[in-house]
Simulated assay, not measured.
Amino acid sequence: MKLNKISIFLGVLMLLSSCNKNPFTGKKTLALVPNSNVLATSFQQYDQFLQENNVIRGTSESQMVKSVGQKIATASERWLNANGYEGYLENYKWEYNLVKDEAVNAWCMPGGKIVVYTGILPITQDEAGLAVVMGHEVAHALANHGQQRMSAGQLQQLGAVVGNVALEDENQEIFNTAYGVGSQVGVMLPFSRSHETEADKIGLTLMAIAGYDPDEAAKLWQRMKANSGGGAPSELLSTHPSNDTRINNLQAWSDEAKAEAKKFGVTSFIK
């Protein structure tokens, strides 16, 4: 029991002493993994990914990805500078690439390394639709969601170690099964869904400041819902909010995003 108490104390101490403040939400966020390590790993993995995949260059679609991405990046910097976070993007190395892949997907690694798959373009349809996706993905990077997920994973592992040390051998298997399911469904999945919701809201603001109509975000997710054919898992068991939840949220937040964009002199939007 003594070792158990020491482990719990160290875990709590690590948690309390290793937090960053999210400039977009004002929340304290997990930061057990140094940001320098996160960025170094991100840049290395991104370069490797590009080497191993078919990067589309010199087309109108690839140019659109770069153009929209740069507008979102500029909007990010404008918002951060205006809200007292000058230098927040100092270690970012923005890069925007279109990759030939039928997957309906896009992502942004920590440090501004973005990939859009060709498979999502029929659903985004145009610049505004693409801005919804890229604003969302950039928001993940700006809010340090990658660092938080890595940190949460470490805490999840710490909890498993503490539990196994505290229990006798015959109870460890029961604990591991219950802990695995409970920590995943009760902690990790809600944690992931909260990140997706944060990225939706932050991304909506960024696309509006970049000059794209935030009303297009809900329309994009209506098309995503139609494309999924209703086969999405239960929200409770998913890493993402349901399509309906996202659509409702985006519709509710659109006017707020327009009001934020107005502070930067943006009053008309690309649809």
Rank of each mutant, 00 (worst) to 15 (best):
E170A: 03
N171C: 01
L30H: 13
Q172A: 04
K5R: 15
E260C: 07
Q70S: 08
S242Y: 12
G203H: 05
V55C: 08
L250D: 13
G211T: 08
V165M: 09
K263S: 15
M109T: 02
E235A: 14
F191H: 14
N243C: 05
N171P: 01
N35M: 07
R57T: 03
K219V: 09
Q63Y: 09
K93H: 09
I209K: 14
Y179I: 01
Q147L: 01
N249G: 06
T41Y: 03
P214W: 01
L206D: 08
F24A: 07
Y92E: 03
F24E: 09
Q172E: 07
T118E: 10
D200N: 14
F269P: 02
K262M: 05
S192D: 13
Q44S: 12
E216W: 04
L39G: 11
A210S: 10
S60P: 00
L206P: 01
M224K: 03
D255F: 00
V33A: 13
S76W: 06
G265N: 13
M207F: 08
A257C: 11
I209N: 14
N81W: 01
K225Y: 09
A160T: 05
F24W: 13
W94K: 02
F175Q: 04
V165H: 12
V12F: 12
S194L: 02
A143Q: 15
V68I: 11
A261I: 09
P122F: 00
G84I: 02
L13Q: 08
T239A: 11
L155S: 04
N171G: 07
T267V: 06
M150E: 13
A257R: 11
A31N: 03
L13S: 12
N53I: 02
E256V: 04
A73D: 11
G211H: 12
L15E: 05
N105S: 15
K262F: 00
P23K: 06
P233H: 15
S242H: 11
S62R: 14
T267P: 15
G58C: 01
A252N: 13
N248C: 02
T267G: 09
N97Q: 14
N22L: 00
E235Q: 14
I56P: 09
W221T: 03
L206Y: 08
V99D: 04
L206F: 05
V65S: 06
N105T: 13
N83E: 05
M134W: 08
R246P: 12
Y92R: 05
G159K: 15
S151E: 01
Q222G: 14
W253P: 09
N248M: 03
V38P: 12
V132T: 15
Y88E: 04
L130W: 14
R223E: 05
S18T: 10
P23Q: 04
S194G: 06
Q184A: 04
R223C: 04
E216S: 06
A208W: 13
M207C: 05
P190G: 03
S36F: 05
I120Y: 07
Y96F: 14
Q251T: 12
S76C: 10
